[in-house]
């Protein structure tokens, strides 16, 4: 695999980092959710994402061919080498903010995996096909909560609007296409209209409007992150950094 083109490894890194950082964020909820049942739901989504991260990062290491495995990639890179989108690194905030992030991301992830499952590259296709079933459920779960909170009580509606407003400026980045994605034959921009339709349908059911358009914030794919990611990594990578070379 050493002679595989580097852009494919970069593709796998993007996919793996998205899942890893989102899984990490969701796992912060464990033990603190609004109801026990919700705690279990959020943990299930987090576990799915962590599992997907392990697969995609493992594949990235394999394609790269430098002997780095999924853990090496997850725990021994710094902010500028992480390629996740800015959306997934946003803080949990209140439950509505977490739901907003999950809602926007899961619909993108579902459409992306559906496209990826048809990829000529069997390795990507296999991971995506399996993960697609998981993220379909995530999208449903998140959409249902958008509707409940949006068309719920006055406070929940205000919080849902604020949550969506916080996350909305990171949506455009999801569909920003470049030559790296092209290496995998992925056309992310082509997913946009399907995503728009899904988002609008759920927002209509929730009696919510799309948030006002902000200037999109971009940069995650090339390592230009928000301030939040460094703190997330310093927590996540603590043991590996404090005890170099130790096995766990």
């Amino acid at each position: 695999m050493a002679d595989a083109p580097p852009p494919l490894a970069a593709c796998a890194l993007r996919l793996g980092d998205d899942a890893l950082i989102l899984g990490q964020r969701l796992s912060e909820w464990c033990g603190h959710a609004p109801a026990i049942e919700i705690d279990l739901s959020l943990a299930n989504v987090a576990l799915d994402q962590i599992g997907q991260a392990a697969h995609f990062l493992g594949l990235a290491g394999e394609i790269e061919g430098k002997g780095r495995d999924a853990d090496k990639l997850a725990f021994h890179r710094d902010v500028m080498d992480f390629a996740n989108c800015l959306l997934v690194e946003q803080p949990n905030g209140d439950f509505a903010q977490t739901v907003a992030r999950q809602f926007l991301f899961s619909h993108y992830q579902e459409l992306l995996y559906a496209a990826l499952a048809e990829s000529k590259d069997a390795r990507f296709a296999a991971i995506a096909a399996k993960a697609l079933k998981e993220v379909k459920y995530h999208a449903t779960l998140a959409s249902d909560w958008v509707v409940r909170l949006g068309d719920g009580a006055e406070e929940s509606r205000a919080r849902m609007i604020a949550g969506l407003d916080w996350m909305w400026r990171f949506a455009d980045e999801l569909f920003a296409a470049d030559e790296i994605d092209a290496a995998l034959g992925l056309d992310k921009a082509a997913l946009r209209s399907a995503w728009d339709a899904r988002i609008d349908a759920v927002l209509a059911d929730a009696t919510l409007e799309r948030p006002a358009a902000h200037r999109p914030v971009l940069g995650g794919r090339t390592g230009r992150h928000s301030e939040h990611l460094g703190h997330l990594l310093s927590e996540m990578q603590f043991l590996q950094r404090a005890y170099p070379g130790a096995a766990w």
């Binding site: 049942e37 739901s41 299930n44 449903t140 249902d144 409940r148």
Partner: peptide, 20 residues
Amino acid sequence: SVHAADAKMAVEHARDTYTR
């Protein structure tokens, strides 16, 4: 059993609680 506000939520909670 699970607690849920409506039937749809009950199915989701049942799925996340009892079919892990």
